[in-house]
């Protein structure tokens, strides 16, 4: 969220991090807070900071590569059309009238 405010600076965000000492402080786990902060995050900037963080990478790895939708469906946000996922394989074939 922090930005540089020197007069005339156009590109004052994100600030790069120059770390000399990093500490971890435990915080209460608040899912509601996390959900509300999602849309406010500048993801590109967040990733910049998170890229080097091992525990973030592990969580990212887990979410990206280890969590699989085995049975269920993927829904189109516009039409609501459900693409079935069976045995981990989404079937994205269209019906004749959808082509």
């Amino acid at each position: 969220m922090l930005a540089c405010t020197i007069k005339g600076v156009q590109n004052g965000f994100p600030l790069k991090i120059q770390a000399e000492e990093v500490v971890e402080r435990e915080a209460d786990f608040d899912p509601d807070f996390l959900r509300h902060i999602f849309p406010k995050l500048e993801w590109a900037a967040f990733l910049e900071g998170a890229r080097a963080d091992e525990s973030f990478l592990k969580a990212f790895h887990h979410a990206l590569l280890e969590v699989h939708l085995e049975e269920g469906a993927l829904l189109c946000p516009e039409t609501g059309r459900a693409f079935k996922v069976s045995k981990g394989i989404p079937n994205m074939l269209l019906n004749e009238d959808e082509v």
């Binding site: 693409f83 981990g88 394989i89 989404p90 079937n91 994205m92 074939l93």
Partner: peptide
């Protein structure tokens, strides 16, 4: 391997 598989028509790739 790092890969995903799905069933799709090559003329309408999802």
């Amino acid at each position: 391997p790092t890969a995903d598989v799905l069933v799709a028509d090559a003329l309408a790739l999802p």
